[in-house]
């Protein structure tokens, strides 16, 4: 899987960036979603993939028996997933509000509203 995932990550980044560069606000938000998938996978893969057990100490044991997955990137990603949910929600609300105020979701037209 180490051979395939870098390509998956690369494609996700490429697609995310393309969507971020759209003028339509909604497309930008979808790009944001793709970007967070890409970044989480990047952290996950860069820390090393292992098909082994989760980093949970068995009830009968005192210590984690290797091999096991690395818990640290998992903790990082867990927060990142939840935060990106918050960001997406906030961005959606902002998009709605901006659309109501400016009557457009074209970012180029919105730029003149704060003048």
């Amino acid at each position: 899987m180490e051979v395939v995932l870098p390509f998956v990550i690369g494609s996700l980044y490429a697609m995310a960036i393309y969507m971020l560069l759209r003028r339509s606000l909604v497309k930008l938000l979808i790009g944001l979603g793709l970007l967070s998938h890409a970044s989480n996978l990047l952290i996950f893969t860069a820390a090393g993939l292992t098909r082994s057990k989760a980093p949970v100490i068995a009830l009968t044991a005192d210590q984690l028996q290797p091999p096991h997955a690395d818990p640290l990137p998992q903790a990082l990603i867990l927060t990142a997933i939840v935060i990106s949910f918050g960001v997406t929600a906030f961005a959606l609300a902002l998009a709605y509000r901006a659309y109501r105020s400016a009557d457009t979701d074209d970012l180029d037209q919105m730029k003149s509203t704060d003048a």
Binding site: V82, F85, G86, A89, L92, A93, Y96
Partner: peptide, 16 residues
Amino acid sequence: TVWGVTLTIIFALEEV
């Protein structure tokens, strides 16, 4: 917190 935030958002989106 997570429970509250998620529901705040969903309710708000639905009621708008």
